[in-house]
Simulated assay, not measured.
Amino acid sequence: MTILQAFIFTLRTILTTRPIASTLILAVVLYGFFYPAAYHSEVASQLPIVVVDQDQSPLSRNIIAKISLLRAVNIVQQTSNFAEAEQMIKRQQADAIFLIPSHLESNVLRGQNSGLALYLSGAYLIRTREIGSGLASSIKASIAEQLKPLLQTTHIEPSLNLYEYPLYNPLGGYGSYIFPAVAALIVQQTLLLGVSFLIVSLKQKQFRFNLTNLTGITLACSLIGILSCLYYFGFVYWYQDYPRDANLPALLLATPVFVMAVVSISLWLGSIFDRPERPAQVLTFTSVPFFFLTGASWPLEAMPQWMSLSAWIIPSTAGVRQFIQLNQMHASLSDIGMNLLILIMITVVFATLAYRRLIRN
């Protein structure tokens, strides 16, 4: 069997074996639509809050009126009883309490500390972040509007405003942040499951591996992985309108390097497993820890040293970083050089291990 024959044989086997085809092809396509759907609105909106107004002044009413216009929040109740609002948080009927204390207006006019307080439910970090940022701007606008006549008569200069411009994610959307990090992980997990399943199935059929046909198998599996990456980085990013400023030549070089690293590990895992169902039993649960170890949800630098160092054994750690840099930041090859080097080392090590187990044994 030549390399080309092994290549065609592998593609035919993948397409005609339902579990492999559903993992390597169908799952990749469906995830491109299913996963981003949950984050379609990009930013959290209409989050329930309780307003505790103990001042009952024109300023407090003005603040509440402006808050009610915010897309991020929904005032579910106004009360003067803080204990009642606290019970609503405990019953998960609201995500935050906004307290307007008594004598707010008089304190502000005298230049004293207003004592405004915002109590956020830390159990929902992303949701409460939206509430905090939305309320802060609304409160500042309300107070500035109320004090405008006073500022004009006393010639007090208003404080300078600070404007924030999110780089590489202009909307500040959660979907635009999370999916570019998850896309490479989806490709990795589908390859790990599908390719290792393929190798175990071939072993059970007494398939005789040699360097030639193993090369053809590797190239066929890598082609599917490369097409999966390009499907996400090209079509899905465009369809979902995610921020993109790709360095295309560097991306076309970095993608095969990442895919080859994943396929090499998959071949090695396939040489170890004894049954076709074993990859699913062992690898399915690894998606969450692998994502955590990419550093996308929590910086690697803040993890224990043994954990941050061992994370680089997993291709997705270097892969996620390099693809975010290439797709969102228009990074050059020199910017991702260390990531590429790590992926090449992973490829060499695990391809050698897979060769020793599949051919020499």
Rank of each mutant, 00 (worst) to 15 (best):
Thr13Asn: 10
Ile14Met: 05
Leu15Gln: 03
Leu15Phe: 01
Leu15Glu: 01
Leu15Tyr: 00
Leu15Val: 03
Leu15Asn: 06
Leu15Lys: 05
Thr16Phe: 05
Thr16Lys: 11
Thr16Ala: 00
Thr17Ile: 05
Thr17Lys: 14
Thr17Tyr: 08
Arg18Gly: 00
Arg18Glu: 04
Pro19His: 09
Pro19Thr: 05
Ile20Pro: 06
Ala21Arg: 13
Ala21Leu: 09
Ser22Tyr: 12
Ser22Thr: 07
Thr23Glu: 07
Thr23Cys: 12
Leu24Ser: 02
Leu24Arg: 06
Leu24Cys: 04
Leu24Asp: 01
Leu24Ala: 02
Leu24Tyr: 01
Leu24Gln: 04
Ile25Thr: 11
Ile25Phe: 10
Ile25Lys: 10
Ile25Tyr: 10
Ile25Arg: 12
Leu26Ile: 13
Leu26Lys: 08
Leu26Asp: 04
Leu26Pro: 02
Ala27Pro: 06
Ala27Gly: 10
Ala27Thr: 12
Ala27Leu: 14
Val28Asn: 00
Val28Lys: 02
Val28Ile: 09
Val28Ala: 07
Val28Met: 03
Val29Met: 14
Val29Ile: 15
Val29Asn: 07
Val29Pro: 03
Val29Thr: 12
Leu30His: 03
Leu30Ser: 03
Leu30Glu: 02
Leu30Ala: 05
Leu30Thr: 02
Tyr31Phe: 13
Tyr31Ser: 13
Tyr31Ile: 00
Tyr31Leu: 12
Gly32Trp: 12
Phe33Leu: 10
Phe33Val: 11
Phe33Ala: 13
Phe33Thr: 08
Phe33Tyr: 15
Phe33Met: 04
Phe34Ile: 15
Phe34Ser: 09
Phe34Leu: 14
Phe34Trp: 08
Phe34Pro: 00
Tyr35Phe: 14
Tyr35Ser: 10
Tyr35His: 06
Tyr35Lys: 00
Pro36Val: 02
Pro36Arg: 07
Pro36Met: 09
Pro36His: 07
Ala37Ser: 15
Ala37Ile: 06
Ala37Phe: 13
Ala37His: 06
Ala37Lys: 04
Ala38Phe: 13
Ala38Pro: 00
Ala38Trp: 07
Ala38Tyr: 11
Ala38Ser: 14
Ala38Lys: 14
Ala38Met: 11
Tyr39Ala: 05
Tyr39Glu: 08
Tyr39Asp: 07
His40Glu: 09
His40Val: 07
His40Pro: 02
His40Arg: 15
His40Leu: 10
His40Asn: 14
His40Cys: 06
His40Phe: 14
Ser41Leu: 12
Ser41Ile: 08
Ser41Ala: 15
Ser41Trp: 08
Ser41Gln: 15
Ser41Phe: 12
Ser41Val: 11
Glu42Gln: 15
Glu42Gly: 04
Glu42His: 13
Glu42Asn: 14
Glu42Phe: 05
Val43Met: 13
Val43Cys: 14
Val43Leu: 15
Val43Ser: 13
Val43Trp: 11
Val43Glu: 14
Ala44Met: 13
Ala44Cys: 03
Ala44Ile: 04
Ala44Asn: 08
Ala44Leu: 13
Ser45Val: 00
Ser45Leu: 10
Ser45Phe: 01
Ser45Asn: 06
Gln46His: 09
Gln46Tyr: 07
Gln46Pro: 02
Gln46Ala: 04
Leu47Asn: 02
Leu47Glu: 01
Leu47Ala: 00
Leu47Val: 01
Leu47Thr: 03
Leu47Lys: 03
Pro48His: 06
Pro48Phe: 06
Pro48Lys: 08
Pro48Ala: 05
Pro48Asp: 11
Pro48Met: 08
Ile49Gln: 10
Ile49Cys: 11
Ile49Arg: 08
Ile49Asn: 10
Val50Trp: 01
Val50Thr: 11
Val51Thr: 03
Val51Pro: 03
